[in-house]
Design a protein around this nucleic acid. Structure first.
Lengths: 204, 204
DNA sequence: ATAACTTGCGACATTAATGTCGCAAGTTCT
DNA sequence: AGAACTTGCGACATTAATGTCGCAAGTTAT
């Protein structure tokens, strides 16, 4: 939970209070601006942060470094949300609700960083994401074993759809912002789909 | 079906055969390159097309014009696919299969252009997409009336999920390329979701 | 208080992409 | 065959973003 904003310009020296605040402000502004326009310039980011362009460069050596830091920050929160919500001591359905809600909370507000996290060059980020992904698959298998999911579903496809639903739900900005409603919608869709019981297509 | 590649550099004059081929080659190359890296340069596109950079500029005045043409091209195919598959004279489930398969065919191979089509500045493109969207909603309502979809589902959310599923299915390049399998997977997921009949979360 | 640190500002160097031109060589059409 | 057109090539102008520096003024910590 401690504000630990990744590798900065200077090695590992602790930052003074004001500098720390500045870094935060920049990251938040970057998220906001880059979500709207992924090709936004340092200038625009600096402006959105209410800071001089040179200051941004002082904190993040290059544009790439800034985006990397942003991605690391969001990834850490994402992993924390998942780790905190998944537990074998709780019924899968409850876990599903909890983890969905927690992930939504992170993804709203860090959408840009989360989206590009999957295709990051940073090995550390890739590692964390792969871990979360594996944890997700593990959970889905448990849900299958418990009878929450049908036994004939492909776990990988199910996981991809789950991710896609979450992604879809976080679109449209703050318009449909009630986390609990969204969570219910996602879980409901994931489990039941949209069809009636009567007209079901039978797989091969 | 005629090759009608949008507004080019010069007004409306018909192109010579070789020029026509070049335009095609460039559009295809652009799709391929931009899918991998949306910030790819004219140089990279030209190279991928096996053409000089100046030739690209001769055909498309600006980078934006090129992307616009690409988007128009893909959008036209998309609309044609949907229009050709949707019919009130056929049971909704059959339409669902047909339209899904046809759209998949377009979206595989024109993924970049299709993705950015939604947020295009060109009013013509927006119009066509809005039309398709409306047609989709109309179809979903019919499916609901027929009893294919539950009567309590939100049409807009259902449509968004349908789009998202198609999008998800076209990820990963040519790996999982069997259209019919993908179509079945999508329709099945859309209608049934992943849960068992036993453990269903009941909406509010 | 004072040393260390941070920020804004303005100036600067560098790089990379865009877009334009004219010309020579090759292609298409009739 | 000959006119019209297209392409590659090399050169050029322009623009915009990146990244660096030093200095003066303000802030933080001790």
């Amino acid at each position: 939970m401690t504000a630990q904003h990744e590798r900065l310009r200077i090695g590992g020296k602790p930052l003074r209070a004001d500098a720390e605040r500045t870094v935060h402000t920049i990251l938040e502004a970057a998220e906001r601006v880059l979500l709207v326009d992924p090709t936004a310039t340092m200038e625009q980011i600096a402006e959105a942060a209410g800071v001089a362009r040179t200051t941004v460069h002082r904190r993040f050596a290059t544009r790439e470094a800034l985006i990397d830091a942003l991605t690391r920050w969001a990834t850490a929160q994402f992993a924390a949300a998942v780790d905190g919500a998944v537990s074998d001591a709780v019924p899968p359905l409850v876990v599903l609700y909890r983890v969905t809600a927690d992930v939504l909370r992170v993804k709203i507000g860090w959408g840009f960083a989360m989206d590009r996290a999957g295709s990051s060059a940073d090995p550390e980020i890739s590692r964390v994401h792969a871990e979360v992904l594996a944890e997700c698959d593990r959970f889905l298998r448990r849900a299958q074993a418990t009878g929450l999911l049908r036994s004939d579903v492909d776990i990988v496809w199910a996981r991809r759809c789950y991710y896609a639903l979450i992604h879809e739900a976080t679109k449209g900005g703050t318009a449909d912002a009630d986390i609990d409603t969204l969570t219910t919608l996602i879980v409901d869709t994931l489990l039941r789909g949209f069809g009636t019981a009567a007209a079901q297509s039978t797989g091969s």
